[in-house]
Design a protein around this nucleic acid. Structure first.
Lengths: 343, 343
DNA sequence: GAGGCGATGCGAATCGCTTCGACGATGCCA
DNA sequence: TGGCATCGTCGAAGCGATTCGCATCGCCTC
């Protein structure tokens, strides 16, 4: 292994000079810098990460905590993770992958050992058990998601309430007066996952405003579960003319089942989804949808973290950043069928 | 931050003693150990990762390189990644998340800097540009996937050839004589991704053995793309009575489209998938399928890596480990319709 | 009763890099 | 032409662990 000292010797300068060439923290004359750079190149020198972390007490590593669960939004999770890794690299950071399994103690571990300088948390729950740790002199952190009490925390998320409102708004504008919501798995609500509840609130509030009747049903993924939910919905509310689906794994089953029960989309029933854009676009009926901006979420999380980590210390950007949802109209939404023609 | 030295002082022993208590590399008397442990506990000591890596030249970090692409098997990727992280933790390792973006140089970087001691590569292509680096005195590595020339490399993968054979076997046993394969995106084949080509070979070889006609079509995900492919298949080979689908995003569209064109599954057409088990089970017709054992792949990769990393040095376990595929029969496969009754 | 041995614990060197104070050489001004 | 910033570079002191060689002590054996 090539060390700083060897590079220094090879270039005929001292070790500190090489270090300064690398960090740029002190001015180095042009010829010297050139010589050092050349030696680094020739010897194929790579600074030792551990030594660096030890001496500077900065590991240049960000920990990313992904959920272990699989009952939710899996593709989006990977997309966010990859976006985080990419964005982090652009700032010279690497990403350590933590699963929820270890629980809050994982945070303590990677942070207390100086392994990671900062943390990004995904799949935040309304009263997440990891939050106290963060508030109490925790490491710099950014949550992707919104807890019940974001006081003192740095959060980035899609404005799911607005997303919900947007869906209702769109449908109400088209003339729908009775909407059913096919939600996430019951488990997601049981865990009080922020985004699911916020979407629901957005849906309900706007529905109330617009005088629209709303029926919400949690729903497991998979064809059979969806079949059960749909059947019950039509049973209880025969007047439903539109669905809002927030569960990627339920999207296609909903379409299939509507078709199978003789309801055309969008002529008889409209469907609006809150899900990954790709899923919506590729569905058997291209779906009007509010996309989850996974890449941007990951990107923004890193940006904010790095801003706080850099020497600039930009006044602790703490606060909530909600991305504005965008509703893309595709083929699955239209005006409700004239009253009286419903089955 | 609490250091080893402080713990030592608090416990009234030397620093080296504390270190030995932690590592167990030398015998320490019971009372002393107890005292040290208590001090560690009380002070909330956490060894500094960087210092440790520097002194021992072992970072206890495994780098995991995931593909950046999104045209393939995304949920499986995340599942493998999580399994890797979990398994790694069980052995005291952490996982560094690398995206393909940086290319082979990322390997050099994390490995040359001592950041990671070993590497797991996903989405391996037949002649992957990262392989030369690994063979040439590279770091310990395990590939999840199989390159064209696995000489000197450590690989773990599902035996996709056997998986393909299994599918044909199952269908041939049922009496099918003409099978169509809905494959991965053309891009996947263009990149010469090992698993796709191996599956195809398994399918073809067994089809030849069993005297079955086979038609293979790469296929983008999404409803429309699948529609085009299916139409062409039925146009060119009206006699096709069974499909093998290897593309998660094509699974549901295939079912939908078959239904829509008046073909019942499995009465008129059988469908067998090679995909995540959950997808198959939750499809609108529960699919007979060969599951991708994502968890086990991740798990095995770590096990092999750790075995090679440990002091035992178990004779470099280099070699290929192919997991035996299992075909689960569900509702989507049955005998072909009697000849003459076909549309 | 003395030499020897195993079991324990200590000290010091070391890992590779960062960083701070200091120092020699310039160039500028008076 | 001497004194004084300024610029560029060097030396040395850590950072917090690991690890190797020794010293110590109690005890057994001859």
């Amino acid at each position: 292994m090539v060390t700083l000292a060897e590079v220094a010797r090879h270039a005929g300068v001292s070790a500190s000079t090489v270090s300064y060439v690398l960090s740029g923290k002190r001015p180095i004359s042009d010829p010297t810098r050139r010589r050092v750079r050349a030696s680094i190149e020739q010897l194929g020198y790579q600074p030792h990460a551990g030594a660096r972390a030890l001496a500077s007490s900065r590991s240049r590593i960000i920990a990313l905590m992904v959920p272990l669960r699989t009952d939710m939004y899996v593709p989006v999770m990977l997309e966010i993770a990859v976006a985080v890794a990419t964005a982090a690299r652009a700032h010279g950071y690497d990403v350590l992958l933590l699963t929820g399994e270890e629980g809050p103690s994982a945070l303590r571990r990677v942070t207390g050992s100086g392994l990671a300088e900062a943390v990004i948390l995904m799949d935040v729950q309304l009263d997440d058990e990891r939050l106290p740790l963060l508030r109490a002199a925790g490491p710099p952190a950014v949550l992707v998601g919104l807890p019940a009490d974001p006081e003192g925390l740095d959060c980035v998320d899609l404005d799911f309430a607005a997303a919900g409102a947007l869906c209702v708004e769109h449908l109400a504008d088209l003339g729908h007066r009775e909407i059913a919501v096919v939600g996430e798995s019951p488990g997601v609500y049981a865990r009080h996952t922020g985004f699911a509840e916020r979407t629901l609130r957005g849906l309900r509030d706007r529905a109330a405003e617009r005088g629209v009747r709303l029926l919400h049903r949690p729903c497991e993924g998979g064809h059979d579960a969806v079949a059960g939910v749909l059947a019950r919905v039509f049973d209880e509310r025969p007047g439903v003319s539109a669905f809002v689906v927030q569960n990627e794994t339920a999207v296609e089953p909903v379409l299939t089942l509507l078709r199978r029960t003789g309801r055309a989309v969008p002529e008889d029933v409209s469907v609006v989804a809150v899900c990954a854009g790709q899923i919506a676009a590729q569905a058997s009926v291209p779906l009007t949808s509010v996309a989850i901006p996974a890449q941007e979420l990951g990107h923004r999380a890193v940006e904010r973290l790095v801003a706080g980590l850099s020497p600039g210390e930009g006044a602790d950007t703490a606060g909530i950043e909600l991305l504005t949802p965008v509703l893309t109209v595709r083929d699955s939404s239209g005006p409700p069928p004239p009253a009286g023609l419903r089955s």
